[in-house]
């Protein structure tokens, strides 16, 4: 991917914050930081697949944090991404029960260094379940929901993209699709319980 000469961390941050056309800043982060972070994972007991997974997860956490204004401008984007990847990797090592003694020492030594960095490691259970339910929707429903909620298209833009007669039809269709998904969420006992718990414990 070609970037303008002056495309830098600051511009990537701006684009992520605007949440429009994220392909460019994500590619920029890949081309600039994937190598060093993957080398770090591989030299700390990981393999190529671990590096790929951790980098993708770190990007997700970083992008969400930037969009929720949780990223502090005094940290560089590289060190921020690095800290997230390191925390994710340490937590992954801990999860693996077969962790060797060397890895345990590494995790213990690294613990102090990562204190103070507020990395929110997303709870994946809810997401995995919702992703599975979403997959069961029809192709058009999936496209409409992603265009509206992720790409932030207007009703008019969706009308053109999906060849609807007018904006009201899009609005009704979007409601039907969302309703279908919510019904599936409500029908899932684990998700339903998690929602109840979230309300109970705030």
């Amino acid at each position: 991917m070609e970037f303008e000469k002056d495309y830098d961390d600051g511009k990537a941050l701006r684009d992520i914050g605007l949440n429009k056309n994220l392909n460019k800043p994500i590619s920029f982060l890949y081309y600039n930081y994937y190598r060093s972070i993957s080398q770090y994972i591989i030299s700390n007991s990981g393999d190529e697949f671990d590096a790929e997974d951790i980098f993708q997860e770190a990007l997700l956490v970083a992008i969400k944090a930037i969009q929720e204004n949780k990223f502090r401008a005094e940290a560089s984007l590289k060190s921020y991404l690095f800290a997230i990847a390191r925390n994710l990797w340490i937590s992954e090592i801990r999860k693996r029960k077969s962790a060797s003694r060397r890895e345990e020492i590494y995790a213990a030594e690294s613990e102090g260094a990562t204190d103070g960095i507020n990395v929110k490691i997303a709870r994946k259970e809810n997401f995995d379940l919702i992703a599975g339910l979403f997959e069961g929707l029809g192709g058009r429903c999936k496209r409409i929901l992603l265009l509206y909620y992720y790409k932030q298209y207007s009703m008019k833009e969706i009308m053109v993209e999906e060849d609807f007669a007018n904006e009201q039809v899009v609005r009704n269709q979007k409601y039907k699709c969302l309703k279908k998904l919510i019904e599936k969420v409500n029908g899932n006992p684990v998700l339903y319980q998690n929602i109840k718990d979230a309300l109970k414990y705030g």
Partner: peptide, 22 residues
């Protein structure tokens, strides 16, 4: 929960697409 799930699905798809390309 549902809306944040949809957004995350979109974001993951976008990251995966860049990953494959890269």
């Amino acid at each position: 929960l549902t809306l944040s799930g949809i957004r995350e699905i979109g974001l993951r798809q976008e990251i995966r697409a860049v990953h494959r390309d890269f």
